[in-house]
């Protein structure tokens, strides 16, 4: 399993959000910022955006690190602090999965 720096994974999540934005129509594009809320009532993602982002990130992880991870399973949603809430939390969750601690 791989140990990847948090900063690199933050960048990966950011790239994922930019790729997601590329799929959205002009009036639906997200205004990206490092501390934006992604998920939940205050989050910017709707149900379909969320699925799309998860798929994009799983593909990016595979392309960059050669690892297959499953971001979206019941374990993720049963965690006290939702790992999809913010970019930092999401990149930390990916780091955990890549290190083999989360599956």
């Amino acid at each position: 399993m791989k140990q990847i720096e948090q900063g690199a994974l933050n960048q990966l999540v950011w790239e994922g959000l930019e790729e997601l934005n590329d799929t959205l129509e002009d009036d639906q594009k997200l205004t990206l910022s490092q501390d934006m809320a992604l998920f939940g009532k205050e989050g910017v993602l709707d149900s379909l955006d969320f699925v799309n982002l998860v798929m994009i990130l799983e593909d990016l992880v595979h392309d960059k690190y050669g690892e297959s991870i499953t971001l979206m399973d019941e374990k993720a949603f049963s965690q006290k602090h939702n790992p999809f809430h913010k970019i930092d939390a999401l990149s930390m969750y990916i780091k955990t999965l890549l290190a083999g601690d989360g599956q």
């Binding site: 709707d46 379909l48 969320f50 699925v51």
Partner: peptide, 10 residues
């Protein structure tokens, strides 16, 4: 409630 926005609606 915690299942909101995680793709089930889609």
């Amino acid at each position: 409630e915690h299942d909101q926005y995680r793709g089930l609606g889609a």
